[in-house]
Simulated scan of single mutants.
Amino acid sequence: MAIQNGLHRVHLGKLPPTILMTGTTTQIMLDAAELLHGNPSMNRPVVIKRMTRMIVNLVAFALGCGVAAFALIAFGIWCFVLPPLVQVLAFFTETAEPEA
């Protein structure tokens, strides 16, 4: 988790954290506290925009957990076959080169 967090902060600093439970949830709570008891020099629109992006990630994570739980109930152990298949498909799929 520390390596993932460090790499994310160095290379993807403008995006919400990918370590959801430790990074995103903590930042949402810090932003909520800042909005409730913030100082006058706080840039409110920036805090609200960041908080909104992170809440979307949190909701997506929760929905993913729900879908995974449903898949386990509906398909049993076979639900674990799909993620490796998707990864193999992604590995062999061509991606566009980023424009410089």
Score class of each variant (00 low, 15 high):
residue 6 G to W: 15
residue 44 R to E: 03
residue 97 E to V: 13
residue 58 L to T: 10
residue 19 I to R: 13
residue 40 P to T: 05
residue 69 A to M: 03
residue 48 I to Y: 11
residue 12 L to Q: 14
residue 19 I to H: 12
residue 31 D to Q: 12
residue 26 T to R: 11
residue 50 R to C: 08
residue 2 A to I: 09
residue 55 I to V: 12
residue 27 Q to H: 14
residue 59 V to R: 10
residue 84 P to H: 07
residue 75 F to I: 06
residue 19 I to C: 12
residue 36 L to T: 11
residue 17 P to I: 04
residue 57 N to I: 05
residue 16 P to L: 01
residue 93 T to S: 05
residue 59 V to L: 11
residue 37 H to Y: 08
residue 59 V to M: 11
residue 58 L to N: 15
residue 38 G to M: 00
residue 68 A to V: 07
residue 23 G to V: 02
residue 15 L to V: 02
residue 41 S to Q: 07
residue 55 I to T: 12
residue 34 E to V: 01
residue 95 T to D: 13
residue 14 K to Y: 14
residue 69 A to C: 01
residue 8 H to L: 09
residue 26 T to F: 12
residue 30 L to W: 04
residue 45 P to S: 01
residue 27 Q to A: 12
residue 37 H to W: 06
residue 51 M to R: 09
residue 21 M to Y: 08
residue 31 D to L: 10
residue 40 P to M: 11
residue 57 N to W: 06
residue 44 R to P: 00
residue 45 P to N: 01
residue 22 T to W: 15
residue 72 L to C: 03
residue 52 T to W: 08
residue 89 L to F: 05
residue 81 V to Y: 14
residue 82 L to P: 00
residue 20 L to I: 14
residue 43 N to C: 04
residue 8 H to K: 10
residue 40 P to D: 09
residue 9 R to Y: 15
residue 65 C to W: 15
residue 30 L to I: 07
residue 55 I to N: 07
residue 57 N to Q: 08
residue 90 A to K: 01
residue 51 M to W: 09
residue 22 T to L: 15
residue 54 M to S: 12
residue 10 V to L: 12
residue 42 M to Y: 04
residue 67 V to C: 07
residue 60 A to P: 02
residue 69 A to G: 02
residue 10 V to M: 08
residue 44 R to S: 01
residue 93 T to D: 02
residue 14 K to V: 10
residue 35 L to T: 00
residue 76 G to W: 09
residue 61 F to P: 06
residue 93 T to W: 05
residue 22 T to M: 14
residue 37 H to I: 02
